[in-house]
Simulated assay, not measured.
Amino acid sequence: MPNHEGFSDFFYASTDGLKLHARIYGEANATGWPVVCLPGLTRNARDFHELALYLSGSAKQPRKVIAFDYRGRGKSAYDPDVKNYNVGVEAGDVLAGLAALGVNEGAFIGTSRGGLIIHVLGMMRPATLKAIVFNDIGPVIEANGLAHIQSYLERERTPKTRAQATAAQRSVHGKDFPALAGADWDRMVWALYRETDGGLVPDFDPKLVDTVASLDLTQPLPDLWPQFEALAAIPLLTIRGANSKLLSTDTLQRMRERHSKMEAITVAGQGHAPFLETSSLPDDIAAFLDRAEQQNSPE
C-alpha cells in the first residue's frame, strides 16, 4: 500500500458553502512555482500521491504540491444538486481553494477532466497558469472514448476485497494498459475505492455516473479550440497514452500546430490516462517545470 505520509489535509469552503478538500505536499517548499494537480472525472487527489511525493521531495527543485478533491469526490462533500458537477463550478472551487491557501499562481497538471478545467481556468483567471501539463486530454474529446467511459461506469460494481477490485479493473482496462505491473493496479485500486462495511465502493458520488450517462454521443461534441488557443503563450507539455481512446493522434498534431512550443510525450503500453508515477514521467514532468520556470525568469 502506498505511503500515506508526506502530506497534510486541507479543508476549505466553496462559494456555495460545501466543505471541500485538498492534499498539501511539501508545505515547507517556499521556492519555485507550486504545482496544482487536478484529477479525472471520478478520481481524486490520491491519484497524484506518488508523483506529488516525488515533486515535493525527490526532484531537483522540490515544490509545494496541491492535489484537489472536487466536490463529490474523495474527502470533499457531495453536492445535493447534480447540476453543479460541471467543469465551470469545479474550476471555481479550485480558485476558491487556491485563494484560501494564498496561492496566486502555479504550474497545473490536469488529468482528463482536470485538463478541461484548466481550459476553463485559462478563461477565468489566465494569470494563475504559469505552466501546464495535460495528461491525455486536449480541446477535442473523442466520442468513442466517452462511450468507453460510459460503459465501464455503468457496469461499476461493489467488490468485496481489493483482490476482486484489482481483477475488475484489469478486466476493463487491461488491454489498453499492457505496460502496467501488479503494483500499478494495486495503486489504482487504492486510489479509486474506499472501504465500507459491505466491501469497497468507488470514492465518488454515484450521481456523477448520471452526468456521463446522459450525454448524447450521436451528436457532435463541442470542442475547446478557442480556450486552447488562449493558452498559446503558456509553457505546455501534453502526455498521451499510446492506446488512448480519448485523445487522438490527429488532435495532438493539431495542438502542436496551434501551440508551436508545446512539448509532447507518448507513453507506450498505456491508454487513458497514463499513470504519471510510472516510467520516466516523474523526471520528465519535473524537468519540464524547471525549464518553464527558468525560461520565465528575468535575465
Rank of each mutant, 00 (worst) to 15 (best):
N144W: 09
E154Y: 06
S112F: 09
E142L: 02
F288L: 06
Y85V: 10
L95T: 07
D284Q: 06
G114I: 04
S280Q: 15
A168W: 13
R113P: 00
G182W: 07
S8T: 15
R155C: 14
M1W: 12
S8G: 15
A67V: 04
P139Y: 03
W185P: 02
S8Q: 14
K75Q: 13
A213K: 04
P178F: 09
M1P: 15
L246M: 08
S76N: 02
V189H: 05
M1G: 13
A22F: 03
I24A: 06
W33T: 00
G199S: 02
K160Y: 13
V82N: 15
Y152H: 14
Y54F: 11
L20E: 03
W185K: 03
P126H: 01
C37Y: 05
P220C: 09
D176N: 11
T278V: 07
V267D: 00
A213V: 12
L146V: 08
A191H: 13
V94G: 08
G271N: 13
L38H: 06
V120F: 15
S56L: 03
V140A: 05
L38A: 04
L101P: 06
M255I: 10
K207D: 14
D205L: 03
I285H: 00
H173W: 15
Y70K: 01
G57S: 10
V209R: 08
G110A: 05
H21A: 06
K175P: 14
V89N: 09
